[in-house]
Deep mutational scan, measured.
Amino acid sequence: DETGKFLVLALYDYQEKSPREVTAKKGDILTLLNSTNKDWWKVEVNGRQGFVPAAYVKFL
């Protein structure tokens, strides 16, 4: 159920650099879980949760 969740689009490829991050490919649609940090947003992609740089994604 996606009610109340926001989707964001990956603008660039991002390769995770730590276990707390997730890899995303340009064009991926990610479920935004938390955007309270202006630099790192928590997302879910391909069943995995983790952080990506906020500058790499935008709201749909």
Results as ranks from 00 to 15, higher is better:
3 T>W: 11
40 W>I: 02
27 G>N: 04
4 G>C: 15
45 V>F: 11
25 K>N: 09
27 G>Q: 02
48 R>Q: 08
39 D>G: 08
3 T>H: 13
14 Y>S: 02
18 S>W: 07
21 E>K: 04
11 L>R: 03
38 K>D: 09
26 K>Q: 10
38 K>T: 10
22 V>G: 03
53 P>Q: 04
56 Y>M: 14
5 K>S: 11
48 R>C: 10
6 F>R: 14
47 G>N: 06
32 L>M: 03
35 S>K: 12
40 W>Q: 00
24 A>C: 15
30 L>N: 00
11 L>H: 02
54 A>R: 11
12 Y>N: 06
47 G>F: 06
39 D>N: 12
35 S>Y: 10
1 D>H: 14
34 N>R: 05
31 T>K: 13
22 V>C: 10
19 P>D: 13
56 Y>H: 07
60 L>H: 08
43 V>N: 00
3 T>E: 12
3 T>Y: 13
45 V>G: 03
56 Y>T: 10
16 E>H: 07
29 I>Y: 06
48 R>S: 06
19 P>L: 08
42 K>A: 08
58 K>Y: 09
21 E>V: 03
59 F>L: 15
13 D>P: 05
38 K>L: 08
41 W>N: 00
38 K>R: 11
50 G>E: 02
59 F>D: 07
37 N>S: 09
37 N>T: 05
13 D>C: 11
25 K>I: 08
35 S>N: 12
9 L>H: 02
33 L>H: 02
13 D>K: 04
7 L>D: 02
42 K>C: 15
12 Y>S: 06
22 V>E: 04
46 N>P: 01
16 E>Y: 04
1 D>E: 13
45 V>L: 14
50 G>W: 05
51 F>R: 00
54 A>T: 05
11 L>I: 11
43 V>S: 00
34 N>T: 07
25 K>Y: 10
43 V>T: 01
45 V>N: 09
14 Y>V: 03
37 N>H: 11
12 Y>F: 12
55 A>I: 11
50 G>R: 00
13 D>L: 05
60 L>V: 12
5 K>V: 13
58 K>I: 14
36 T>W: 10
13 D>R: 03
32 L>Y: 02
32 L>S: 01
2 E>K: 14
55 A>Y: 09
18 S>L: 08
56 Y>A: 14
59 F>Q: 10
1 D>C: 15
13 D>F: 08
52 V>R: 00
14 Y>L: 03
16 E>L: 06
10 A>G: 02
57 V>Y: 02
60 L>N: 06
9 L>P: 00
29 I>Q: 03
46 N>I: 05
59 F>K: 10
24 A>W: 11
42 K>W: 15
55 A>M: 10
47 G>H: 03
60 L>M: 12
1 D>F: 14
55 A>F: 08
44 E>K: 04
55 A>W: 09
41 W>V: 08
49 Q>G: 03
28 D>L: 07
30 L>D: 00
20 R>T: 13
52 V>A: 02
28 D>A: 08
2 E>N: 14
3 T>R: 13
33 L>S: 01
29 I>C: 09
51 F>G: 01
58 K>Q: 14
14 Y>K: 01
56 Y>V: 15
36 T>I: 08
38 K>M: 09
48 R>I: 08
27 G>D: 04
27 G>H: 05
41 W>P: 00
51 F>A: 02
27 G>S: 03
54 A>H: 03
26 K>H: 06
47 G>M: 04
48 R>H: 07
21 E>R: 03
59 F>R: 10
11 L>N: 01
4 G>T: 12
25 K>M: 10
21 E>F: 07
34 N>D: 15
57 V>C: 10
37 N>A: 07
42 K>F: 15
33 L>G: 00
3 T>K: 14
49 Q>D: 05
57 V>E: 00
7 L>N: 05
16 E>A: 15
18 S>H: 13
12 Y>L: 09
18 S>R: 08
13 D>W: 09
5 K>L: 13
1 D>G: 14
30 L>H: 01
22 V>M: 06
58 K>N: 06
56 Y>N: 08
25 K>R: 11
19 P>Q: 10
19 P>I: 09
57 V>D: 00
14 Y>I: 06
37 N>V: 04
50 G>T: 03
44 E>P: 00
2 E>R: 13
12 Y>T: 06
21 E>M: 05
33 L>N: 00
47 G>S: 04
47 G>A: 02
16 E>S: 15
45 V>D: 02
16 E>W: 06
4 G>Y: 12
50 G>D: 01
27 G>P: 03
41 W>M: 03
25 K>F: 09
35 S>Q: 10
4 G>W: 12
42 K>H: 12
32 L>Q: 00
47 G>E: 04
46 N>R: 10
14 Y>C: 10
47 G>Q: 03
42 K>E: 14
46 N>L: 07
60 L>E: 05
44 E>A: 07
58 K>P: 02
22 V>N: 03
7 L>C: 14
17 K>M: 11
6 F>S: 11
36 T>P: 03
33 L>K: 02
51 F>P: 00
18 S>T: 10
1 D>N: 14
21 E>N: 03
52 V>H: 01
2 E>G: 14
53 P>F: 11
12 Y>M: 11
11 L>V: 09
43 V>M: 00
25 K>C: 12
16 E>T: 06
43 V>K: 00
8 V>S: 00
11 L>F: 05
21 E>D: 05
15 Q>S: 11
12 Y>P: 00
60 L>R: 01
48 R>Y: 06
54 A>P: 04
59 F>Y: 10
57 V>M: 11
60 L>S: 05
41 W>F: 10
33 L>F: 03
15 Q>E: 14
4 G>K: 14
19 P>N: 09
51 F>H: 02
53 P>W: 11
35 S>W: 15
52 V>N: 03
29 I>W: 06
28 D>S: 07
43 V>C: 08
16 E>G: 15
30 L>W: 04
2 E>H: 13
57 V>T: 00
12 Y>A: 10
51 F>E: 02
43 V>I: 05
12 Y>R: 12
42 K>T: 07
20 R>V: 11
40 W>N: 00
27 G>L: 03
60 L>D: 02
27 G>I: 04
17 K>T: 11
37 N>C: 09
5 K>D: 08
22 V>H: 03
29 I>D: 01
11 L>S: 02
7 L>Q: 11
26 K>I: 08
52 V>G: 02
39 D>F: 15
15 Q>P: 06
3 T>C: 15
14 Y>F: 08
8 V>E: 00
39 D>W: 15
